[in-house]
Design a protein around this nucleic acid. Structure first.
Lengths: 116, 116
DNA sequence: CGGTTTTACGGAGCTCGTAACCATT
DNA sequence: AATGGTTACGAGCTCCGTAAAACCG
């Protein structure tokens, strides 16, 4: 377990979660929301319900420790932190997909291996 | 867990899972095992038990659809596919960590707390 | 044997969908 | 009312640790 020895400052939030506790599902959901502009559309495109998407975005904001989406009348909009996360999430998810392609032997990138 | 009746055919994968179903925990565990050489050492370094590590590596091999670790007397060794996954996993996990660092250095619009 | 990985079981926790609720136009 | 997001609850699944078994020199 991670116990900080730093003595004096003892506050933080209720939960001791940082971004490393994020899940790939949360990243995918967040990307979909950012791309589609509304949770509803994202939910439809992922085969989830609105509420599932809402909980996932809430979760990723919790581990990020910041608001990533600005709620507006006609959907959501990325905040500054949201854009940061979005860029990183794209890298992560693309890498996962690239791995999947590479493993299945499909044309993905340089360095594809042939599993015998 | 979903075993076939062992009639005659040697079916490879009963579950329809590809690498996109991998979890970050599995990637972390796999990296630790690859770096440390044994599941036991990896377990200790992660605060898990041996069995948890074993299940995670089994899981990642299942979604990868290939053996990633060659079991040997004194631990494990990466296969060709294992090295592929290892390289990709490093990218993914580093990106996650980088995001965490970047976010903790951001002037978040809510909930930023200065310790000390 | 000695060291390692794997499997069976039970419980804790997470995530989903349904459904109800909130907020703004 | 309509649209979009949020929250409460119960069901199902996943994951862990413990403990026992299976491998392999």
């Amino acid at each position: 377990m991670h116990e900080s020895n730093e003595s004096s400052a003892r506050l933080v939030c209720v939960n001791v979660m940082d971004f490393t506790d994020v899940s790939l599902t949360a990243l995918r959901v967040f990307r979909a929301v950012a791309e589609q502009g509304t949770s509803t559309a994202a939910a439809a495109s992922l085969g989830y319900t609105q509420s599932a998407v809402s909980r996932q975005t809430a979760a990723i904001e919790r581990v990020a420790g910041a608001e990533l989406l600005e709620r507006r009348r006609d959907g959501v909009r990325l905040t500054a932190a949201g854009r940061v996360v979005m860029r990183r999430a794209a890298v992560v998810l693309d890498e996962i997909d690239a791995t999947a392609r590479e493993l299945s032997g499909l044309p993905g990138e340089a360095g594809t291996v042939r599993l015998g």
